[in-house]
């Protein structure tokens, strides 16, 4: 008998499926399943549950995007379907996370364009999708309904519900068969509260991903890291209201000075490093989906995750 990690857990993270293939009534090439762990991330031979996934973030409004992230994307950035097709082919993320950032502009009203964008991106890529809608309670209802409708049958992960505005997003997720990101500001209690609220609207737990909000590396990541660890820990200890997969994004890490002020090739290196050094730790803290914006971050993250998962895909000796 060898010395191994001491695992004394009673709980299990629920599984969440993103994307529907033809047999499930959708058009995705495959579905992604996350969650299912019975132990700490990557622990066990083989580790329990499903391997963490990397999502690539893009937007329908690139003027609101970090310049470091789209420097190498070029004109494709102006057409989200082009951008998504390019990403699937060249960058090979596990998922695409589409931000309908245009809904966050003041005076937004063009709902029909939202539907068109979602449909076009669904055409352009066969990867499972995460779609982010508005963040204004006044718009939520119509925006989420529009997205839900446009993506009906595709089992997307819809974002985001917050404790002050969760009913519209939850209603759209339930009506059109999607799942939902529940976002709360870096606090285990607030994360749990939102999950309870969502449960009480009727949204089942296996349709929720927790986003405990990820602060920038160096400016808040220390809190996010521990909140993710605590959520995972509580879930494994049996708290079913926290036993959902976690999603974490490096978006804030791209706003730090070191990335913002770097130039040329240095900017790419800085962005990739900052995404790597925030998102790989996020998986170690318990995140099942990590999201990046720099195209060059994806491959490195995926092989690092693979090596942590089964020791296989490491390069060299």
């Amino acid at each position: 008998m060898g010395l191994t990690p001491l695992s004394e857990w009673s709980g299990q993270i629920g599984e969440l499926v993103i994307g529907a293939t033809r047999t499930d009534g959708g058009t995705r090439s495959h579905a992604v399943t996350i969650g299912g762990e019975r132990d700490l991330p990557y622990i066990g031979i083989p580790p329990s549950g499903h391997i963490p996934r990397v999502a690539y973030e893009l937007t329908d409004d690139p003027s609101l995007w970090q310049s470091a992230a789209i420097r190498t994307i070029g004109d494709r950035a102006h057409d989200p379907s082009d951008w998504a097709a390019f990403a699937e082919k060249e960058l090979q993320p596990d998922l695409i996370r589409l931000y309908l950032s245009s809904t966050r502009r003041r005076g937004f009203s063009d709902l029909s364009q939202i539907g068109k964008t979602v449909e076009a991106v669904l055409q352009a890529t066969k990867l499972p999708l995460i779609i982010e809608g508005s963040n204004d309670p006044a718009l939520d209802s119509s925006v989420f309904r529009k997205i839900g409708e446009a993506a009906e049958g595709e089992r997307v992960l819809l974002g985001t519900a917050e404790s002050g505005r969760y009913r519209s997003a939850a209603a759209a997720a339930m009506a059109y068969g999607h799942s939902l990101i529940a976002q709360s500001p870096i606090d285990i209690n607030l994360a749990k509260q939102l999950n309870i609220l969502l449960r009480e609207t009727g949204l089942p737990h296996d349709r929720i991903a927790i986003d405990p909000y990820t602060g920038a590396l160096g400016y808040g990541f220390e809190y996010s890291y521990s909140v993710m660890e605590r959520i995972r820990y509580s879930a494994l200890k049996g708290d079913t209201d926290l036993a959902m997969p976690l999603i974490s994004s490096a978006a804030d890490s791209l706003t730090v000075k070191e990335v913002r002020e770097a130039e040329g090739g240095d900017a790419d290196q800085a962005a990739v490093a900052w995404e790597m050094y925030s998102m790989l730790p996020a998986t170690l803290a318990g995140a099942s989906i990590v999201c990046v914006r720099h195209p060059l971050s994806i491959a490195g993250l995926k092989s690092a995750i693979a090596s942590l998962w089964n020791g296989q895909k490491s390069v060299g000796v």
């Binding site: 606090d187 209690n189 749990k192 209201d241």
Partner: peptide, 15 residues
């Protein structure tokens, strides 16, 4: 503070 945030819920976050 942790207890406080947990208590800002009816009746409490830990049901």
């Amino acid at each position: 503070m942790d207890e406080y945030t947990g208590s800002c819920f009816l009746p409490h976050t830990d049901l």
